[in-house]
């Protein structure tokens, strides 16, 4: 009757429990409490929300362990934290702090411009961003137990999240339509392992939970992403950069559950005050686009 930790089923299963929920970026214990009270399924502890990282510039890194522990102490829901792409020591630190999930995130400044973290070496599960199916499968091959479409973090502009969800969904649908003897070339084109490509072609979905992120700012944005096939939603700057965070957080949770009922989404959208101001992704100079980080 051996008890085994860190199995694929335990890591991927954790993400299954988050489905249909909203994961919110928080920078302190007070915000974490507001998120929990509003019905968030988890919080992402980080030093600065993406909009501030964008505004202030500089190198963005893993958060202070003190801050993460304060957040862990203040809520009973899962606490996630971000490590830089390829920074396996930051990830080891986060694992030693007992965070519930690590986001190897393009929102932070990458530490390695060629390799991602070998995530199989960890007991704690990882979520990674992807802009297309090949990228998602490469991350899964490295041990990611959950994928989120990247979108463009810190903008409040949902267009890139939309583009990435359409891209991932479209590529999955295309794989399902191929003959079996065409999957070898498909794997070559996707730059992804054949075994994973074959699995996706057979099941018509990713082998892990797919959330969406990057630019979601309103209840209708959240519902849109669910309608596009997301299993759930990350909201970063959209909540605590808005006029009334508690109310907006609860509204986004409601719209995520009842994404297919426009009346509920309408009610959730009423009287929320100001949304985060936002930046059009098209106005961002290419080097400032976070979604292009990751390889």
């Amino acid at each position: 009757m051996a008890e085994v930790t860190g199995t694929g089923r335990v890591k991927r299963g954790m993400a299954e429990m988050l489905k249909g929920g909203v994961i919110m970026d928080v920078v302190n214990a007070e915000q974490a409490k507001i998120a929990e009270d509003a019905g968030a399924v988890a919080v992402m502890a980080l030093e600065r929300v993406p909009a501030d990282i964008r505004a202030q510039g500089g190198v963005a890194r893993m958060s202070d362990p003190d801050m993460i522990e304060k957040i862990q102490a203040s809520v009973s829901i899962p606490v996630m934290a971000k490590a830089r792409i390829g920074h396996f020591v930051e990830a080891q630190v986060l694992q030693s702090l007992n965070v519930d999930y690590i986001d190897e995130s393009e929102v932070l400044t990458p530490s390695d411009y060629e390799n991602h973290i070998d995530k199989w070496n960890f007991t704690v599960p990882f979520v990674c961003g992807a802009t297309n199916l090949g990228e998602a499968l490469r991350r899964i091959n490295e041990g990611a137990a959950m994928i989120r479409s990247k979108g463009e973090a810190g903008t409040g502009d949902v267009s890139n999240a939309m583009m990435h969800m359409r891209k991932i969904g479209g590529e999955i649908r295309r794989l399902s339509s191929l003959r079996e003897d065409e999957l070898y070339v498909a794997a070559k084109e996707l730059q992804a392992p054949y075994a994973l490509v074959k699995e996706v072609a057979e099941t018509g979905k990713l082998p892990v939970v797919l959330f969406t992120a990057g630019g979601i700012a309103t209840p209708a944005d959240a519902a849109l992403m669910m309608a596009m096939g997301a299993d759930g939603v990350f909201i970063g700057s959209g909540i605590f950069k808005s006029g009334n965070p508690a109310q907006r957080a609860a509204a986004c949770v409601r719209a995520t559950t009842f994404w297919d009922d426009p009346k509920v989404v309408a009610d959730a959208s009423r009287g929320l005050g100001e949304a985060m101001v936002g930046i059009n992704v098209a106005d961002l100079p290419a080097p400032h686009r976070l979604s292009e980080r990751g390889w």
């Binding site: 009757m1 051996a2 008890e3 085994v4 930790t5 860190g6 199995t7 089923r9 335990v10 299963g13 954790m14 899962p78 694992q95 007992n98 965070v99 519930d100 999930y101 007991t123 704690v124 599960p125």
Partner: peptide, 24 residues
């Protein structure tokens, strides 16, 4: 515990219940 303590294990049930189970 937290997620790093999450585990799977075989689980035995009392009589009348359907045998050993892989519990997550």
């Amino acid at each position: 515990g937290r997620q790093v303590d999450s585990f799977e294990s075989d689980l035995e049930f009392k009589d009348g219940f359907p045998g050993l189970l892989k519990a997550v």
